[in-house]
Amino acid sequence: MTGDALVELEGVTKRFQRGSGTAVTAVDDVTLSVRRGEVLAVIGYSGAGKSTLVRLVNALEQPTTGTVRVAGQDITRLGEKELRAARAGIGMIFQQFNLLSSRTVAGNVAYPLKVAGVGRAERDRRTAELLDFVGLLDRAHAHPEQLSGGQKQRVGIARALATSPPLLLADEATSALDPETTEEVLTLLRRVNTELGVTVMLITHEMEAVRRVADRVAVMEGGRVVELGDVYDVFTAPQTAAAQRFVRSATHDRPSPEALARLREHHAGRLVTVRVTDRPRLQQTVDAAFRDAGTGAELVFGGVGEIRERRAGSLTYELTGDDAAVARALTALRDQGVSVEEEE
């Protein structure tokens, strides 16, 4: 594997024994690496195995087969003591925050430092620094139940970063939050990555979270990673059905089946969708292809925006003209590397 990988999972399978003797395979032969300094999102529906996958990284779960290396260290072979030391280098935040209700905000952030044997003065200094970073210095002496969900997660993030770990695991960190606080926490996670240089593994079922903070995304289905790529590539050209469903959930430039049915009522021609990427002069290429093939083209649906600061979108045209002309137009576009497909 590449030298710049912070986390390397190799052929990892995790099976859980159920009561009746049947086994459930939560993670199925996954090989995946998280590069140093990136935000890797793992997206999947509930039951796809993503929460189990992230727990294999800090050995909260042991794999049935396969190896898990973090910073070059095979953490499936560590004794309890070494494992505890390794975990100090891996921060984790949770969907339900999992704050200690018997301790104050500052007490929560200081706890991992206490566990690591850091002295009181240094603990206090580091705690104040982290609370300042997440914008909660004024709530240091509050108790967790006095905080809003977004504030709780920010305390969770401060606590996870207390021991200055190079890696942060975020397990559905925004799933219990409303859209506004989700935004706030995602922005903070991005800052953790860019300002502190922490590598982040983000587990989520929300494609919007992927779009906002991730560099790469792994799509999980049935315990397997079915697609892996740069967020931009997966958004603009999802390969698998699972990835396409997720992309559709976060973008609104592709007509839904209902919208398609309405379009067909008013447009007798064939409906084709062109993927918009940041390739130069895309519009000119598309126009020329339609013109040269002799088809009429009417823009009926679509949108163009940005994914990871690059142009991305989708435009649906109604093409009029005989079948041969339409076929010529599609072939010409594909020959020039423009992704185009006919709506079913």
Binding site: L83, I90, Q96, L100, R159
Partner: peptide, 23 residues
């Protein structure tokens, strides 16, 4: 979940039992 969080921080089992669970 709180126990899991403490495990993820690298707390020892005794520390988790008395410093987290009992508390």
């Amino acid at each position: 979940g709180v126990v899991e969080a403490a495990r993820a921080m690298g707390a020892s089992r005794a520390a988790i039992l008395f410093g987290v669970v009992v508390r």
